[in-house]
Design a protein around this nucleic acid. Structure first.
Lengths: 263, 263
DNA sequence: TACGCCACTTCCGTGTGGTGGAAGACGTAT
DNA sequence: ATACGTCTTCCACCACACGGAAGTGGCGTA
């Protein structure tokens, strides 16, 4: 294989197209509605340039204007996103299995994929009685502290693992693993057992158990259950169910020639 | 208000950014995976130009490469789409109401918004026993023949209604309304009764009843139930439930300062 | 092994269209 | 009235997007 076009780091050059995409990047979960001036500031271009960029996106449907004159992400982007195999495609296959799991446990059920050195949550079923979790559909989080993240990291390319292990591990609670050597041992354990347990690494009262979704040997996603608890024992009983559901999703993805391959 | 930046028709000029967006447009539900050559052909640019455009999108995360070397819509687009208020935002609010409706009826429940002169389906709950429908989440359809479309069209700006009425109405079945004057009368009826019934206008065996989702007087979406049947009587009993659920969604959208305004 | 074909990748000189300063319109607070 | 902030339009300059051409690698055929 040649060097090829792979997902790289951030767009370095300030090209015309890069700026257009930078405009979209300006929208976040915290700031989903922006004025033109805010966009110009975020992208780092003069107002007139931002005006032209936004005009282009607006004509295409990538951003929409509400009646306050502020801009929001447009329907066209959502529509395109529905074509992303790791987004809606994955969700559609996984949802029935997740619902079964929720029916049995009535706890939070989460589905996530890896993007670079982060988890992206693709779907979540949350009960009212279930423990509150920080994550949202479409949201990101660091890999090491989450159950799904441990699974995805354990089966990630060595290069990704080293990149994560090289940087300091931020502690969210006093149970968060911050020692790289300990994390290495945990990852080996995850590979050996085919599941991961995150014990109060994200919040003080939540424990999760996660399992890999495999398609022809490659781990493409991870499924987990999050419960209130203070030790791995809180989720042990759920492990077989999570693993079974994850395998079911993987099997369904592999079967119907829906073009599912590893990223 | 000045002329301002509003969503316009297709991007006319072949600008740098326009081509970048055109690359994304090349992906459809029918062709969700494309080779570089296919993209170049679809966009109408030389291979070398396509290569650069795709490289830029790839670095950003807008497209991803599977191991066959083909390109697919990337996770970043899906993630951004999750910020679209009329996409995931709407879905999150509406889903509980839709599930309630499904629980009671066990028929297809659909949520849609209008984009230009088409409906875009935002969410759908389908039972196994329910009648088969053509629509998918993220899919588009003409306004006049569908229940949700009638509702959205009836409450659309006059300019949009005239644009739809000016063009010939394509018949999907022998029940599809093709006479503009009759459509006008139906739309008036929809406004008067606060609901729409589509009687076998899309397929020969399906009838649907739809109701508007209103936020502070503006219709932002439409909710419907689709059942097997051969006359409006098949859905009459469901109408109150659909209207109630639609009102519930509208109320929830309006309440929590989640920034919901008319498009 | 040699050849042809196809899909992809890289390079670089040309000229097109992206750029951003400036000026004006509009609304709102002082 | 005056000042400020936001948005919109215009246009001359020159960076950088463009695409032809040449090179690479894989695969099937002879």
């Amino acid at each position: 294989m040649t060097s090829g076009l792979r997902a790289g780091p951030l767009p370095a050059r300030r090209t015309a197209g890069g700026k257009l995409l930078a405009v979209l990047d300006a929208f976040t979960r915290e700031r989903p509605a922006l004025t033109l001036s805010e966009i110009a500031r975020a992208v780092g271009v003069p107002l007139s340039t931002a005006h032209r960029l936004v005009g282009e996106l607006c004509a295409w449907g990538g951003v929409e204007r509400d009646e306050d004159g502020r801009y929001r992400v447009g329907l066209r982007v959502w529509e395109l996103g529905a074509l992303a195999p790791r987004g809606l495609g994955l969700r559609e296959v996984a949802l029935p299995f997740m619902e079964d799991l929720y029916e049995v446990t009535h706890e939070n059920v989460q589905l996530a994929v890896r993007d670079g050195t982060e988890v992206v949550f693709v779907e979540r079923i949350a009960g009212r009685s279930a423990v509150g979790v920080l994550t949202r559909v479409g949201g990101r989080f660091a890999l090491p502290p989450t159950g799904v993240g441990l699974v995805l990291l354990a089966h990630a390319p060595a290069e990704v693992q080293e990149r994560v292990l090289a940087e300091p591990l931020t502690a969210h609670t006093r149970h968060t693993i911050t020692d790289p050597r300990r994390l290495r041992r945990v990852l080996a354990e995850v590979r050996r057992t085919g599941m991961a347990i995150s014990d109060r690494q994200v919040t003080e009262d939540a424990v999760s158990v996660a399992a890999p979704v495999e398609v022809s040997g490659a781990v493409v996603a991870a499924l987990s259950i999050v419960v209130r608890g203070s030790s791995p024992a809180a989720v042990r009983d759920f492990a077989p169910g999570v693993r079974a559901a994850a395998r079911g999703i993987g099997r369904t993805l592999a079967s119907p020639g829906a073009g599912w391959r590893a990223p």
